[in-house]
């Protein structure tokens, strides 16, 4: 089943930054771009108290939640120890400079 959706050119997501994707069905998704242009997506909701991860600082393959500083792994969606919890991940890909998300 092909459920890929076109999101935006890669350039529209800042390196070490993110953008929010708002599907018609609701539930914001955060798309992150690392310093070497890897792209990851997950629910824009921190497993701690629902903070908007898209607003965090991205470093390596992690994002730090802006509310209370939990670190969430971008590749697995898991909170970094000692915190516990995880975040729903979505598939993303970059083709010909365009970002696609599977929702």
């Amino acid at each position: 089943m092909n459920n890929w959706k076109l999101i935006c050119p890669l350039e529209d997501i800042p390196q070490l930054g993110s953008r929010i994707v708002r599907p018609a069905t609701g539930g914001d998704i955060a798309i992150f771009r690392t310093s070497d242009d890897e792209v990851f997506a997950m629910h824009d909701k921190c497993p701690h108290k629902g903070g908007p991860l898209s607003q965090g600082i991205v470093h390596g393959k992690r994002v730090t939640c802006p509310l209370h500083g939990w670190n969430i792994g971008l590749d697995d969606g898991h909170a970094v120890a000692p915190d516990v919890g995880s975040c729903t991940k979505f598939q993303v890909k970059v083709e010909a400079g365009q970002v696609y998300l599977s929702v």
Binding site: W4, K5, L6, I7, C8, D12, P14, G17, R19, I20, V21, R22, P23, A24, D28, I31, Y100, L101, V103
Partner: peptide, 12 residues
């Protein structure tokens, strides 16, 4: 201004 604008996905 981009950071303030949520992206709406487009079907392909």
């Amino acid at each position: 201004i981009k950071q303030f604008i949520p992206i709406v996905p487009v079907a392909v």
